[in-house]
Design a binder for these strands. Structure first.
Length: 865
RNA sequence: GCCUGGGUGGCGGAAUAGGUAGACGCAAGGGACUUAAAAUCCCUUGGAGCUUGUCUCCGUGCGGGUUCGAUUCCCGCCCCAGGCACCA
């Protein structure tokens, strides 16, 4: 048994990475004899370099993958690239590189970084979403969805910069202006493609309660996002007799108090009603102004309610009251029908609006024991009460009237019961270049025609040049746009030039991993049948709603087509917290990298101009904020194992991690200490068998042996049940400390050495999923030839962890006053007697009478006086 | 603004079913080894007090409450973060 004297991470890590690669250690196949375990981490967008968020995410995943493998599972652990997206286009504009070239280059460098970190991926399954061999199947599915009516076209608004003549993403709009040119951003209506996710709203909601392996907070967020509300749709006839306005409400008990109508500024009826009246100009100006406003702000509770009268009236179908129609900032086109029946007495927004514009307020629900008077009200009354001015429902409790009124509306054909969801259909059209082309052809004769299966894929032309301002080059590419209609053969047909939302690719990549080279469809049913669903999915909390909901929806669509037979793709979910760091900003030079701020006399100054820098908010690490840490530099200095160890030790995975540079040093120190511990004992452990529990041990060795087994138990449950690697690591640190604290003479005889060997082997095995390279090296040094990955995970013995004595805490009136040991089999009565006889306790009680004694089994005694 | 989390020493965190607050690590201070430094090892380290003790009091964002006992449960605030549908 020999090993290098010094621990040089780079040497050890490169050596083992080569061995793993040469022996194909991580490649797996369907094996029906073995239990499968599918461990998946969210695949990265290839932005250029791996960042700390990735390191954290993938380190967590790798521990679980390696741990499960040691437990005998056939572990699928793949990696790939979410390769379409906006940053590639931005980079193209900024640096004049083609998005494809930029993306592939990034993939190459990120792949080698991941390899350098020693993650146990089966690289033979790598998936890259911007390749036709991937997105062709997505296009095929789109066509199938189109044919079934699951994909459809409708008008929707986009952010539009007039100056750049481009559609902007929400993040490209800064305070209502274009991030590139600073020009004003307006809402423009375009034809767009949608997926009918709302068809599955109820099912997605139901199954939220059948995801026991998901964090409660994520389930709650999803439920709230879907936002089911049970209510009624009521038809308000227009005064001019041209139809009616349908309104969704959950408070149809208040319909008798509806005195005016509010419509979203985007509502098509608004301009129609105003047309030709003296209101037209004013309404138009208001609508235009609203289209420029931030929707979140516009509808927030404390924002000033405003609106204008559109010059028309509708009729309250129950009271026959003439109701003026307004368009108002707080009404949203996306929710319900885009129109709100305003009941100022019982809705706060309506109340504020009515007060502002002097509109009638009619109380129709009276709280018990109180009489509301519209003149005296300072705010709306939204609580329960008794119905008034609502014949024939007067005297009923409002909660009971809900059902009665719904029935009445249906009977009189004035409305109907309705369930409304906050969830809207998924808009997938992007007016961008770098994405999956939507496989649709527009023909003057045949209309909207899907590209036939045999003509797929519609390949994204990779020779296109990006245009100024970020406009997509596709509409101007005649070779791409001009095509023949597959139905009538007309040569004047045009291709759809919008591409798909990149969330589409990430909604099925986990299925593709099961058979990444399958060329007869999206995936091989056989492989998916074995591997799916994902047993453990791990990714950032920022994906808690959209990505996860879309993936759940897509799985349902695939099931509907009969491609698979489960509804939920992810059995267990772990959402890791963000890696954050403070931002540093110079008044003249903007955001600075931490090293660009120089520390001087306790102040931090800008490297370039010497001004005092401003320490900004602590935020999610991002390149644009320059608050990133480069993992490369850390790997170079400390090695991959130290970086992995530290990122797992710094905080439990679900918690946000505020980065600090200190601390990495400690992780490195610990690995060096373990290295020395093994190295310095190698000679005397040569040929020694680890202690197997057969022989009686002396006190000290028995204690160490107990600690070994307690550590195995602790580490196993920390990994298995909670993913709390930080406490698992501290437990191993404690064991290392215990071994080092032993008297040297304890390990001189054969028995002592066998316990020492057990201790060292346990330390190495327990650490191996976390720091695999150094573990392999030490394991080999201890005389083993197999990879640690194929060694069974250690098991603890119940007998070995039994303590001889236990510590009891003695309290008087809930305050700790003494501690003592008792035999571990002592009963409550003995513990109580011992406490009452304890001199410190006796002194505390003095002559006060004892009122009560509480004994918590094997833990604590509390004496109340 | 809405939805969802979080707040514990100088710092990261621990306390798994309401029962010893601060495990483990970092940083800091002191000491050993060394010609010296690095590395390593040992000790101290939540705050305050004086009577220096197996001492007393305070202390888990703030204010209340439940309980023999609250970091943990309940109510009301404050602050921070994530998401809010075209960042991924």
């Amino acid at each position: 048994m020999t090993m290098e004297k010094e621990y040089i991470p780079e040497v050890v890590e490169l050596k083992w990475q080569k061995i793993w690669e040469d022996t194909n250690l991580f490649s797996v196949n369907v094996n029906r004899q073995k239990k499968k375990y599918y461990l998946l981490e969210m695949f990265p967008y290839p932005s250029g370099n791996i960042h700390m968020g990735h390191v954290r995410n993938y380190a967590i995943g790798d521990v679980v993958a390696r741990y499960k493998r040691m437990q005998g599972y056939n572990v699928l652990h793949p990696m790939g690239w979410d390769a379409f997206g906006m940053p590639a286009e931005n980079a193209a504009i900024a640096n004049n590189v083609h998005p494809a070239k930029w993306t592939y280059k990034n993939i190459d460098s990120m792949r080698s970084q991941l390899k350098r970190l020693g993650f146990s991926y089966d690289w033979g399954r790598e998936v890259t979403t911007c390749k036709p061999e991937y997105y062709r199947w997505e296009q095929l599915l789109f066509v199938k969805m189109f044919e079934k009516g699951m994909a459809y076209r409708k008008k929707a608004f986009v952010n539009w910069c007039n100056q750049c003549q481009t559609v902007l993403a929400n993040e490209q709009v800064e305070a209502g202006r274009c991030w590139r040119c600073g020009g004003e951003v307006v809402q423009k209506e375009l034809d767009q493609w949608f997926f009918r996710i709302t068809d599955y709203a109820d099912d997605l909601l139901d199954y939220c309660n059948r995801l026991p392996g998901w964090p409660d907070k994520v389930v709650t967020m999803q439920k709230n996002w879907i936002g089911k509300s049970v209510g009624a749709e009521i038809y308000f006839p227009l005064e001019n007799g041209n139809g009616h306005i349908p309104v969704f409400t959950t408070r149809h008990d208040t319909v008798f108090g509806a005195t005016f109508m509010c419509m979203a500024p985007e509502h098509p009826l608004v301009m129609k009603l105003a047309a030709g009246t003296d209101r037209e100009e004013e309404v138009k100006a208001f609508v235009e102004r609203m289209k420029r406003q931030d929707k979140i702000k516009r509808t927030s509770e404390d924002y000033e309610k405003e609106g204008v009268f559109v010059g028309a009236y509708c009729i309250n179908p129950l009271t026959k009251r003439r109701m003026p129609i307004f368009t108002a900032n707080f009404a949203l086109m996306e929710y319900g029908t885009g129109a709100v029946m305003a009941v100022p007495a019982h809705d706060q927004r309506d109340f504020e609006f009515a007060r502002k514009y002097g509109l009638d307020i009619i109380v129709v629900i009276q709280p018990e024991g109180e009489t509301l008077n519209p003149q005296d009200m300072t705010r709306a009354y939204t609580g329960e009460g008794i119905m008034v001015r609502s014949a024939p429902f007067n005297g009923m409790k409002n909660v009971e009237a809900l059902d009665a009124i719904a029935a009445y509306l249906e009977e009189k054909k004035l409305g109907r019961r309705k369930v409304n969801f906050r969830l809207r259909d998924w808009g997938i059209s992007r007016q961008r270049y770098w994405g999956t082309p939507i496989p649709i052809i527009y023909c003057d004769n045949c209309g909207v025609v899907p590209v036939p299966e045999k003509d797929l894929p519609v390949v994204l032309p990779e020779d296109a040049e990006m245009l100024e301002g970020g406009r997509s080059p596709l509409p101007a590419l005649d070779d791409f746009v001009k095509t023949r209609c597959p139905r009538c053969g007309s040569s004047s047909a045009r291709r759809e030039t919008d591409t798909m939302d990149t969330f589409v690719e990430s909604s099925w990549y986990f299925e593709r991993y099961c058979s990444p080279h399958y060329d007869e469809g999206m995936f091989d049913p056989e492989a998916v049948g074995y591997w799916m669903p994902v047993d453990q999915y791990i990714g950032g909390i920022e994906h808690a709603i959209l990505h996860l909901l879309y993936a759940r929806y897509f799985t349902r669509v695939l099931k509907e087509f009969g491609f698979l037979n489960y509804k939920e793709p992810f059995t267990r979910l772990l959402t890791q917290g963000m890696v954050r760091r403070e931002t540093v900003k110079c008044p003249d030079h903007g955001f600075l990298y931490p090293e660009e701020a120089i520390l001087k006399d306790g102040d931090r100054l800008c490297k370039y101009c010497g001004s005092h820098v401003e320490i900004g908010r602590t935020e999610k690490m991002s390149k644009s904020k320059k608050n990133v840490v480069d993992p490369n530099a850390l790997i170079e200095k400390y090695g991959a194992d130290t970086l992995r160890l530290f990122s797992l030790f710094a905080a439990p995975p679900e918690k946000d991690l505020d980065w600090s540079d200190q601390g990495v040093e400690g992780a490195s120190r610990f690995l060096k200490r373990v290295w020395r511990l093994v190295r310095d004992n190698l000679d005397r452990l040569d040929g020694v068998k680890p202690y197997d529990g057969g022989e009686e041990l002396g006190r000290d060795l028995r204690q160490l042996h107990r600690k070994i087994h307690q550590t195995i138990k602790r580490v196993t449950s920390d990994i298995e049940t909670r993913f709390h690697f930080n406490t698992a690591i501290s437990a191993v640190m404690e064991l290392v400390n215990s071994v080092q604290a032993m008297r040297e003479s304890a390990f001189t005889d054969r028995l002592g050495r066998s316990v020492l060997k057990l201790a060292l082997e346990s330390i190495v095995l327990l650490l191996s999923p976390i720091v695999p390279h150094v573990a392999e090296e030490l394991w080999a040094a201890l005389g083993h030839s197999k990879s640690v990955l194929d060694v069974p995970w250690p098991k603890y013995s119940k007998d070995a962890i039994e303590e001889d004595t236990i510590l009891i805490v003695a309290q008087v009136n809930g305050k700790v006053r003494s501690r003592f040991y008792v035999a571990s089999d002592a009963d409550d009565e003995t513990i109580k007697e011992t406490a009452l006889a304890d001199e410190r306790i006796v002194a505390r009680i003095s002559d006060r009478p004892i009122r009560k004694v509480i004994v918590v089994h094997k833990k604590l005694v509390n004496i109340v006086v």
